[in-house]
Structure formats: structure tokens, C-alpha cells
Design a protein around this nucleic acid. Structure first.
Lengths: 351, 351
DNA sequence: AGGTTGTGCGTGTACGTTAACGCAATCTCT
DNA sequence: AGAGATTGCGTTAACGTACACGCACAACCT
């Protein structure tokens, strides 16, 4: 193993000088710098990460900017689980994580949280740009150039983020379409039940589904929306309309995690025909109905793994200085009754 | 952070003594041992793994006993990729890996390789018990008690292995049945095309499929076998029989990675009815036909991840002395045209 | 009694890197 | 010209653990 000492010897300098070159701390002549760098390249020197973390005095601070955990959105909780797992693994390397949670429905709360982020001394930032507009205008512009940041869950096209970790939403809609066509008779009507029209993510799913079904079948598609996702009454009345207006209904695709409303509805209405139900996310409610056979496919997005990978992307860039891919795409996990047990977060021993 | 020095101070001894207690190197009085151990427990001392690996003189040797890579079985190659990935990550911790490959079809070759394993000085062994009988009788019995070993791919029930990493084969057959029923009309005939009757793994898949279909439908099942998997001619003649003998055929489930033979056959016989084709493993051939729409579902088993996890299980047990779960079950990945790209090994950035 | 062996500890160096400190030599400013 | 700042290095003590070595003392043997 080639060490800093070996390099120092070959360059005819001390280890202190080599260290200064490696870390660009200055106070080394141009000539010496060049010589040391050349020897480093020649010997293909790779710093020993163990010795590094052991002797480093500084602790790195990573910030996490994302909506606070709320009962109606399981996703963030799981993301935190992954972040904490990474935290545990990396704290020996003197990595610390501070959270900047905010009320996901309040712009003011977000702005306040983002200001706190800017005031904190951070070496890296992991964030979920949930409020597209606000983020883009108010925050991302103000991030200092030397603060690397990673997006997860969703992304902002023009931003200078180090990496994006998440799913291809359009493709996940395509996949839903694919599953729908494989499990129906290619005739009749399909319904897309969607919500939160302002969410880029979700409209992409819808688009993917529509495009796939249009291209690969002659089935007709009807789109229904429920703006206020939390409002159960509205939701159920929309379902009333869906079933009364479509007598040749073959399946419903729910673009969000609220798929279980449909299952609940079907459970209460035994007279309704057998239709396919496809949706997203392995929330407790969804999983329950999947197991009961009232939901047929769920598409999982590995929220824990997204959080985990997000922290690791920062670590690799900031600490080990490995290259980090600009996109880390999460697989589109297809989950049914028969394989659900292997995708539940408490089961998954992801490393 | 609580260090060995802190413990030494509190116990009124030197760090050398604490070290001797921790590593059970002897030469410490009973009284002192007890006192040190108690303080370790009280302070919840966790050794610093970085300092440990840095100052350790010994390198750990892990052995890998599995069939050599062969063109007709992609699986092993992928497993090695994962093993090598773990190797790269762990070599800084002074972990070394040596391979003991053998011809998977020859018992003699296996026995020879296993003897070499027993002669090597190993600290851990990762192995795939492919030849069930032979393994059980000849080899597992002779593994020294102090050599921890991990199975991957398949397992031996009565063995004293540290862990098993792989899939639940029965459940993966169930999943195939589940997908088959969801994508057919629940009437007509289904064919199971199987081979290698002596393989426990594969017969479990068949059984899972049969049980699921019997329980959840009235479709009739017919089982066809091709003993010599490599023999293309035999295989094609079996397919001739399948299609001529079953005029209400709805789908074929292939219990192995040889699914592409069916796809190939269908490609050459345009006159044949549209049937569902479901099989296992993301081999290049299978993926090709999946993308073409001639295979509808593949069930993946993450061979790279199995190898990766296998090495890490040994590492955790031998080096960090964390507890290792007796079973690390791989998810049953459902792969279609629409999500295949995210499951291909070159894409997956599994950490 | 003298030698050997074993027990119970402490000391010190090493692992590879970081980073504070120190010290000439040179440069800058009044 | 002299004081102060800057440049270009070398030296060294950490970081936390492993492990070889050594030393004192007791036990045992002949």
C-alpha cells in the first residue's frame, strides 16, 4: 500500500508538505507541488480512509431539508429511517446530520426552515424540493456555490445539484399502464384517479400511464381528480361518480399513495364488478388491502433507500471525493400479494 | 466517545490489560477481567472500527466455494461481481478473498475444490451448496467448528451455517402463479416447463406455482420436463409437444432461466396463440425477449446482491462481531418490459 | 539454593493521516 | 534599515487500537 510517507520520501519532502499539497492548504512552492502531484499520480496513491477519519479533527455537518413527518405522508418517515441508517454507519467518520423540518403545506414554514439552513454551517445538504416554485425562486438560487446539495424524491431541472435520487415518474406511470394492460382484457374503460395537480411528479405518472395505454391498446381513459387528498368525503363521492358513469370499467390507476380509498370503497360495495386496482407506495393501508386482494399492484419507490443514498452521495463527494453520478434512479418495484413481505421496510436489510 | 484508554483509567489498569480482556488473550487475573468487563458494559463501549483495522496486523482470509463461471450459467458471474464489490469496499479493513471454483457438473471437481478449502487457512467461508447430496455428506460435516460459513443461492437444512442468503423458492413459484392468474382469464391450461429434477430449488418453485394456481383457480396444470437443459433440440421438441397437446393453452411458466427458449420458439411460430410466458432470472437472452414482449414477466433474484451480502455477513460476524441474521432473504423482483432497465446489474448502484 | 516456567500486568511502537506549531528565509512597508 | 508579514518547508503530537516486549513476582522442580 502506498502511503503519504512513501510519497514524501520519493519527492524529497516531509509528510507535512505532501499533506498540504493533497489538501491544497497552500504554503508549498509551485515546483514542489508539481513534483508531489506527479508522484501521487504515478503511484496511484489512494488515501487511507480509515486513517483519515481517525485523525481528522473536523466533523462534517450535513443538513436535511424536508417536510416534517406527518401521519398523512408516510414517505418522509421512511426517508428518515434510511438517513438515520446512513448516519449510524457514517458517524465513525465524523459525519453529523441536522434536520430542518417544515410544515409541507406552508410556504412560510418552508422559507423559515430554508433560512435556518443558510445560516447553519453545512458541508452538504440533502433536500426534497416539494414546493417546486418556491424552492426554485427563493432558495436554490441562494445556496452558496461551495455548498453541495443533493435532491431526493423530486428534482428541479435547472438546478446545480450534485445528484438526484428518486424515480423516473413518467416511467413509473408507464409501468402502471403496462401492468394494467397485462391484467385486463384490452377492452373497456380505464380510470385514472389523480390529485394534487400542481405536483410535477404526479402529473408525470399520469402522463406515462396515458401514453402507454394509448399506444398499446384501444381502451378509453377517463381522468378523475380529487383536489384535496385528505378529504375523505370528496374522495368517496368521486368514486361514486366513477362507478356510476363507467359501466365497462376495467381498472383504476391511482397516481398517489391514496389507493386504499378505492380498496375501501370496493370493500363496502360487493355488488361492484371485479376491476384492477393499481397504485403507488407501500403504506400500511395500501399493504393491508394488497394482502386482501383489493389492490392488485403497488409500485414501490424505496423511500428509505432514497434517504440512505442521499446521505451517501454527499459523503462520497465531500469526504472520500469519489465521483457521484448525477442521477441515482430508484428501481420501480412491482409489489403484489405474493412478494410484498420482501419489500416492507422492517424486513429489508439494505446495506 | 468512550475509548479503551477511558476504560483503562476507570479500571485502574493499563490499555494493554483492557486489550487483553477484550480479545481474551489471557494473562489477566479473574478479578481484573471482571472489573474491566463490567466497566465496558456500563459505558457501552464500542470499539472504533477504524482504529482497529488500521492497527491490526492480521489480514482476514475469506474463501468462496462455488461453481466456476460458465457461459450457460450467468448467475455465478453476477455473484462474483457482488463479491468483488464487497471485496473492494472491505480490503481497507484487511479482508482478502480467495476463490475455490469447480466444475459445477462434476462431483470430483467439487471434492477436490472442497479439499483445497479445508487446507487453506480461512477465517470465513461463503459457499453455494449446489450439489446438495455431496455437500451434505462429504463437506459440511468436515468444516472445522471454528470456521464460520455462509450459504448463498441455496441452503442445507441441518447445517450449522452462520446465515443463508437467497430467495424463498417456494414463494417465488407462488409469485409466478400469482402473476399468471392476474394476467390470464382463469380458464384453460397452464404449462410448467421444468428441468434438473434433482434441484431442490427448482422443484420448490414448481410446487409453489402449482399450489398457488390450484388454490386460486380452476385452471388445469400440465408439467413438462426437459432433463438436459443444454440440449436445445430436446427442448424444442418438448415445446412442439406442448403446443400440439394443449389447444387451450394460456401460459407457460418456466422454472429456470431457460425461459428464452420458449420466446425463441414463439418468435419462429407466428401462428401460435398469444400466451403468457413467465420465467426466472435476468439473463441477456431473457432480457432481450422481455423487451420484445415475448416474455411477460421475469422474476429476478439479485445474484450480485447475494454475493455482496454473503461477504458482508462474514465480515460482520468475524470482524465487527455484530449479530448476523440466520436468513437474509432476497426480494422477489418482478420485472417487465417497463421496469427492466432499473434491475440490470450494470445499472444498479447497490451499496 | 538456583533455575525454569507461568502469571499479571505496564510500556511503547506501529498503523496512515491530520493539523498545529515552529523556524528560517524572503518580502513589504514605512 | 528595521519591524512585521508572508512563504516554504520540517517536526511532532494526536486519533484509537493492536500487539510485541519486558519486567516483577510467584510457583514449581531438582
Amino acid at each position: 500500500m502506498v502511503t503519504i510517507k512513501e510519497i514524501a520520501k520519493r519527492a524529497g519532502v516531509s509528510v507535512g508538505t505532501v499533506d498540504r499539497v493533497i489538501h491544497d492548504r497552500g504554503r508549498v512552492s509551485k515546483a514542489t507541488t508539481g513534483r508531489v502531484k506527479q508522484i501521487i499520480a504515478e503511484l496511484d496513491y489512494k488515501p487511507n480512509i480509515l486513517a483519515r477519519s481517525l485523525s481528522r479533527l473536523k466533523t462534517f455537518q450535513f443538513g436535511v431539508l424536508m417536510p416534517q413527518v406527518s401521519p398523512d405522508n408516510h414517505y418522509w418517515e421512511l426517508a428518515i429511517q434510511g438517513i438515520e441508517k446512513a448516519h449510524q454507519e457514517l458517524k465513525i467518520h465524523k459525519i453529523n446530520i441536522s434536520y430542518f423540518p417544515y410544515d409541507g403545506y406552508s410556504e412560510k414554514a418552508f422559507i423559515e426552515a430554508s433560512n435556518r439552513v443558510l445560516q447553519a454551517k453545512l458541508d452538504g445538504l440533502l433536500m426534497a424540493p416539494t414546493i417546486y416554485k418556491t424552492f426554485d425562486d427563493e432558495f436554490v438560487q441562494r445556496i452558496p456555490r461551495n455548498l453541495p446539495y443533493v435532491f431526493f424524491n423530486s428534482t428541479i431541472p435547472a438546478a446545480k445539484n450534485l445528484s438526484y435520487i428518486g424515480q423516473d415518474s413518467y416511467q413509473s406511470g408507464m409501468l402502471a399502464g403496462n401492468l394494467m394492460l397485462m391484467s385486463t382484457h384490452l377492452q373497456g374503460t380505464l380510470v385514472i384517479l389523480t390529485m394534487l395537480h400542481d405536483d410535477y411528479h404526479i402529473s408525470k405518472r399520469q402522463q406515462g400511464f396515458e401514453d402507454y395505454v394509448r399506444k398499446n391498446s384501444n381502451m378509453s381513459i377517463k381522468v378523475y381528480g380529487a383536489m384535496r387528498a385528505e378529504d375523505r368525503e370528496t374522495f368517496l363521492s368521486v368514486l361514486d361518480r366513477i362507478f356510476s358513469e363507467n359501466d365497462d370499467l376495467q381498472g383504476i390507476y391511482v397516481t398517489t399513495a391514496l389507493t386504499y380509498y378505492v380498496a375501501e370503497y370496493l370493500q363496502c360495495h360487493h355488488e361492484l364488478p371485479r376491476i384492477r386496482v393499481i397504485g403507488h407506495d407501500l403504506t400500511d393501508e395500501n399493504v393491508k388491502y394488497l394482502k386482501q386482494g383489493l389492490i392488485h399492484f403497488l409500485i414501490g419507490q424505496r423511500p428509505e433507500y432514497q434517504g440512505y443514498q442521499g446521505i451517501y452521495a454527499l459523503y462520497r463527494h465531500v469526504v472520500t471525493q469519489e465521483p457521484v453520478p448525477p442521477y441515482i434512479m430508484m428501481p420501480l418495484d412491482i409489489v403484489t400479494q405474493a412478494n410484498i413481505d420482501y419489500y416492507l421496510p422492517h424486513y429489508v436489510e439494505f446495506i
